[in-house]
């Protein structure tokens, strides 16, 4: 028997704590980059050329270098110029900056996919450019890109494992420590594997479900009809 259930049970409590840190890191970075990404996208389309150039440089830098190096740089190199972050914070900053750059591209694609007629119609009503963006273009753009955003969130969840390298006490890091202490790499890493899968797989299913649901387009809410009517409708289908 390669897999040692007793040891696995032993490891479960510390690994669960690790999974909790992984999830926390995912949620924190996900929330930040979902919002920051919008602003980065808007900044790249700004009227102010200096802002455009700076933000553009940031996005290209993030996209053309490995995330692993970015994390290592923030945690190990920045202290030399006086910026000292604890491991979790360094991972949070690094991952958020990285993912925001990618999401900005996604948002930009979404914004460009909203038909020009929408902007024309809003402008003809007398809406100002900022109102058009906030009330007409962005709501539609975000809906268009929700499936992509979901996929990036799942990627982010998996990428948090890189934070192990800068000693964040997340799932992989705790697995490494435990495995090194007991030498039972097979049991521990199988367990770590399974725990990533237990979260990652339902997350992917959720993204697929949402994508299907969005494909139906905008429809009036059935909830406003009496529930009995809906039941009858379902039966007669």
């Amino acid at each position: 028997m390669f897999f040692n259930p007793e040891l696995a049970l032993d490891a479960l409590s510390t690994l669960s704590l690790g999974l909790l840190v992984t999830i926390l890191l995912t949620l924190a970075c996900g929330f930040t980059s979902l919002i920051l990404g919008i602003f980065v996208a808007l900044a790249r389309m700004s009227r102010f050329w200096l802002l455009r150039i700076v933000v553009n440089g940031y996005v290209q830098l993030m996209r053309s270098t490995p995330l692993l190096i970015q994390l290592i740089y923030i945690y190990f190199a920045l202290p030399f110029i006086g910026i000292r972050l604890d491991p979790f914070l360094a991972a949070y900053v690094g991952l958020s900056l990285h993912v925001s750059a990618y999401l900005a591209e996604v948002y930009r694609g979404g914004i460009e996919a909203v038909p020009k007629g929408q902007t024309d119609a809003s402008a003809a009503l007398g809406m100002r450019p900022s109102v058009i963006m906030a009330r007409v273009v962005l709501p539609q753009a975000i809906r268009i890109v929700i499936p992509s955003l979901g996929n990036y969130m799942v990627s982010l969840f998996k990428d948090t494992s890189l934070a192990a390298v800068i000693t964040v006490q997340e799932l992989l890091f705790r697995g490494q420590i435990f495995a090194a202490r007991t030498y039972d790499y097979f049991t521990i890493y199988t367990l770590v594997f399974a725990m990533y899968f237990a979260i990652g797989y339902p997350a992917i299913r959720l993204v697929i479900y949402i994508e299907k649901k969005l494909k139906r387009g905008y429809t009036a809410k059935l909830a406003e009809k009496p529930a009995r009517d809906i039941a009858v409708m379902e039966e007669t289908k």
């Binding site: 038909p115 024309d120 003809a124 009503l125 007409v136 539609q140 905008y218």
Partner: peptide
């Protein structure tokens, strides 16, 4: 102050 109606309606779908 000047309304406009378009060929493709361009209602806000959301």
């Amino acid at each position: 102050t000047v309304g406009m109606v378009f060929q493709h309606f361009d209602l806000f779908p959301h």
